[in-house]
Amino acid sequence: MQSSLEADATKDSNQEYVAEFIGVSKRFGDILAANQLNLGIQRGEFLSFLGPSGCGKTTALRMLAGFEPPSEGVVRINHTDMSAVPSYQRPVNMVFQQYALFPHMTVGQNVGYGLRQLRPRLPKSEIMARVKKVLATVRLGDFADRRTWELSGGQQQRVALARAIVNEPKLLLLDEPMAALDAKLRAEMQRELLDLQRSLGITFVLVTHDQEEALSMSDRICIMGGGRIAQVGTPQELYDRPVNRYVADFVGKANILSGEVVSRQDGQAKLVLGCGTEVIVPESSPDDRRRVDVVVRPEALSLSSTPQNGNAALRARVTHCTFLGDHTEYLLQAEGIGPLQINLPRQAERASGGYGVGDEVHILWAAGTGLILAAED
């Protein structure tokens, strides 16, 4: 039987996958670490596997690298089944969280290590030229003779990247490579890594549990949960149109409320929240359920001291407020609903005069705000 992924590839001959998971599962004894993964990784894209610990993202990466064989299904790279291909013969390289640099070698020797293992052997002049070129690419051109233990954390990461890309792999696999860096350096390295990927055109596959890292760097993100793929899409798609409660709750900040649908029309539904307030909300996949969950992002709501025409209003009390520079984060207790979060931009807060802990306010909900979530399996 042809899988849905194979069928899609057949229908779209213009779509080029550099790697594919087709019905892939992985078991470790009684533990099902990956469950029926179907995914095509597009040539030249930056794809991230994102999810909490134990969700299966690292297992997926290790199956691409050849460190773990799938228990079921097929992993393909460049349209070739990798089942019988050992890791060292695959057109991939991997950057590990701890970098795994050789302390007894210089930077240049570390970077050229993979080239020296190729058979037939490359001339020393070619190895030196390629090492010099890749060190210049990662802005370490003057560091070839340094020892790795003389470098900062960010410089060591660049050496690991240089060693990984010098062989010009089809896939560069990144296993949380920035987890050991401090916040400022991590942000700098994220930008450098993205610039490097764009300049090289190599397909990058990143594993991370840091959603901000995935959102800021990825062309597409694969959300994992319980060994399954929950949703694949661009950062904007995952944020604006999550398919279910799990994705909505994991990507960004989210208020998730329950309500009862009283009418449906033209892709929108009127529903009554627990407090009795009626709101108009778009549906991601209309069905006939009466009880539904709706997600609304903290920045999509606003606050007022009084109700305003054209907006549904929920009465609430401010329990916490945190100034974060460009916006203020308000935590509120809404009558009949429970805790909610609202982020007010600096300009909007200045116009209103701001609110303090204990203030009674109205949460304003404009028609068309939020999204009804599809039922979870």
Rank of each mutant, 00 (worst) to 15 (best):
G153F: 02
G153Q: 00
G153M: 00
G154P: 00
G154H: 03
Q155S: 07
Q156T: 03
Q157G: 04
Q157I: 08
R158G: 03
R158L: 04
R158M: 02
R158T: 02
V159Q: 12
V159E: 08
V159C: 10
A160T: 08
L161S: 13
A162P: 01
R163V: 08
R163P: 00
I165R: 11
I165G: 10
I165P: 01
I165T: 08
V166G: 11
V166T: 13
P169F: 06
P169N: 03
K170F: 00
L171R: 09
L171K: 05
L172D: 01
L172H: 02
L172I: 13
L173A: 05
L174D: 01
L174V: 05
L174T: 03
L174R: 02
D175T: 01
D175C: 05
D175Q: 05
E176K: 14
P177G: 06
P177K: 08
P177V: 06
M178I: 09
A179P: 00
A179L: 03
A179N: 07
L181I: 07
D182F: 11
D182T: 14
D182V: 12
D182P: 00
A183Q: 12
A183E: 10
R186S: 10
A187W: 09
A187L: 15
A187M: 15
Q190E: 13
R191V: 14
R191G: 06
R191H: 12
E192V: 14
E192D: 15
E192S: 13
L193T: 14
L194F: 11
D195I: 10
L196C: 13
Q197V: 15
Q197W: 11
R198D: 06
S199H: 12
L200N: 11
L200W: 13
I202L: 08
I202S: 08
T203M: 05
T203Q: 07
T203K: 07
F204Q: 04
F204G: 05
V205F: 01
V205K: 07
L206G: 07
V207N: 11
T208Y: 08
T208H: 09
T208E: 05
H209P: 00
E213Y: 03
